[in-house]
C-alpha cells in the first residue's frame, strides 16, 4: 500500500514509518518522542519546551516536510491543516490540576492549552506564512481533510497542504502526516488515506 505521489509519515505503537517503510522504533518506556528527536539528529532546543501533542505534531512535520521538496514552494504556498479528537485535553488537565494543587496557574502550561499551538510551532520552525486550520473530529477523518485541501486549492490559497492527525494519550502516540500537493490530490481518495492510516 502506498501513496506514490505523496510523502507520508505514520507514528504509532512506538514506531515511525515513512512512505510505508519502517524508519525507526524505540520500545523503552516514556521517552519515545525524545528518542525520535535524537534519531533524526535535530538540534532545536524549543522542542523541549513543547507539550507532547506539539512534540508529536512537530516531529511528524519534520520527517514529512524534509522529504517534500519544501524549498520549491514560496513561503506562503504551503498550508498546515491538523486535526485530532482530544484537542489539547491532556495539557488542559495538567494545567488545571497544577492550578488546583499549587494554587498557582502556570503560564507555560496554559499556552499549550490550544491545539493549534502545534501548528504554530511547525510554522515557526519551517518559516511557513500560509494558511492554517485545526479541526476536531471523532476519528481520523480523511474525507474532511481532503475536502479542506481541495477547497484551498480551488481558492488558490495554497499549492500544497501538510495534513496531520495527532492524538496523545499518556505514553500512546497516534500520528499521521501527509504532504498533499495541488497535482497529487487528484490521485488520493478518502478510502486510500484511511487504509494507510489504519494499516498501522
Amino acid at each position: 500500500m502506498s501513496l506514490s505521489l505523496n510523502t507520508y509519515c505514520r507514528i504509532k505503537d512506538k514506531e515511525v514509518h515513512i512512505n510505508g517503510e519502517l524508519f525507526c522504533q524505540f520500545m523503552e518506556e516514556g521517552s519515545f518522542l525524545r528518542s525520535v528527536y535524537n534519531h533524526i539528529g535535530l538540534s532545536y532546543p524549543k522542542f523541549f519546551k513543547m507539550d507532547a501533542l506539539s512534540q508529536l505534531g512537530f516531529l511528524g512535520a519534520e520527517m514529512t516536510l524534509m522529504r517534500s521538496e519544501l524549498e520549491t514552494y514560496a513561503d506562503d504556498e504551503v498550508a498546515v491543516i491538523y486535526s485530532n479528537r482530544s484537542s489539547s485535553l491532556e495539557t488542559d488537565h495538567a494545567y488545571y490540576n497544577s492550578l488546583k494543587e499549587s494554587g498557582i496557574a502556570s503560564p507555560a502550561l496554559f499556552v499549550y492549552t490550544l491545539p493549534n499551538i502545534e501548528v504554530g510551532e511547525i510554522c515557526i520552525r519551517h518559516k511557513l506564512y500560509g494558511e492554517n486550520n485545526f479541526l476536531i473530529t471523532e476519528r481520523f477523518n480523511a474525507a474532511q481533510l481532503l475536502e479542506q485541501c481541495e477547497a484551498l486549492f480551488a481558492d488558490n490559497a495554497a499549492k500544497a497542504v501538510l495534513i496531520g492527525w495527532t492524538e496523545v494519550n499518556g505514553d500512546e502516540h497516534d500520528g499521521f502526516f501527509v504532504f498533499i500537493t495541488n497535482t497529487s490530490v487528484e490521485d488520493l481518495t478518502a478510502e486510500s488515506l484511511t487504509d494507510i492510516y489504519l494499516d498501522r
Partner: peptide, 27 residues
Amino acid sequence: EPMIVSNACISGLLGIITAARLIRAEK
C-alpha cells in the same frame, strides 16, 4: 456531522472563511 474548528482566537473568522471556500468548491 458538524465540523469543529478550534484555532485559537481566529476560530470564528476562520470558520466563516472555511465555509465560503467549501461552498465555492461546491462541497
